[in-house]
């Protein structure tokens, strides 16, 4: 067994420090060591997307990274979205469009959607469906999620999301 190391990461703008053995997954480090349990774990093999967080500006699976790899990283998790009681616009849209039921996939969905929308100013409806297929929801049937993310894209980019696909 190899010794634990002290890891410092910026989480939602705050530098937090904790100990992790080299093999500790980043998801476990966030949840169990730093107490950021908003990030959920649904499969531990990178398929379900519940553990998706934003690492250095891009969405990534925290179950497929080791905590030691995150040393010095700038991480955003679901806990950083709302400003106190004031929900993030996407969180409001999720509630409005009934994009959550049990709420287990929701943190990963939110982080996936934020990256998808903010990294692409010309998303189509199809792009949103494909983009959101990066995370699994077992409750909603996705309709509310697609609607909420579409509305968010329209808010962020100030233009309607086009219906047609742009591949081909």
């Amino acid at each position: 067994m190899t010794a634990s190391r002290t890891i410092s990461v910026s989480i939602n703008g705050e530098v937090l420090t904790g100990d992790a053995a080299p093999r500790m997954l980043l998801a476990d480090f966030l949840r169990d060591v730093l107490g950021k349990t908003g990030t959920h774990v649904g499969c531990e093999h990178g398929v379900c997307g519940a553990c998706t967080i934003i690492v250095d500006g891009v969405a990534a699976r925290s179950c497929l990274m080791f905590a030691v790899q995150a040393e010095g990283a700038d991480i955003k998790t679901v806990e950083g979205l709302a400003d106190g009681d004031d929900l993030h616009p996407l969180q409001k849209l999720f509630s409005e469009h009934r994009a959550l039921q049990c709420g287990y996939c929701t943190p990963g969905m939110l982080m996936t959607a934020i990256d998808l929308v903010e990294s692409n100013s010309s998303l189509t409806t199809e792009d949103i469906k494909v983009g959101m297929s990066a995370a699994l929801c077992r409750c909603t049937g996705y309709e509310g999620i697609i609607k909420a993310v579409t509305a968010y894209a329209e808010q962020v980019h100030g233009k309607p999301v086009r219906q047609e696909s742009d591949n081909g």
């Binding site: 080299p22 093999r23 093999h45 990178g46 179950c63 497929l64 080791f66 030691v68 790899q69």
Partner: peptide, 23 residues
């Protein structure tokens, strides 16, 4: 990137003693 290797590690289907992280 670890997107194929880490799942194998999590399933303990791959058991290297050392990972040399290229990231």
């Amino acid at each position: 990137g670890g997107q194929s290797l880490v799942p194998l590690l999590n399933f303990r289907l791959s058991r290297p003693e050392i990972l040399i992280d290229l990231n």
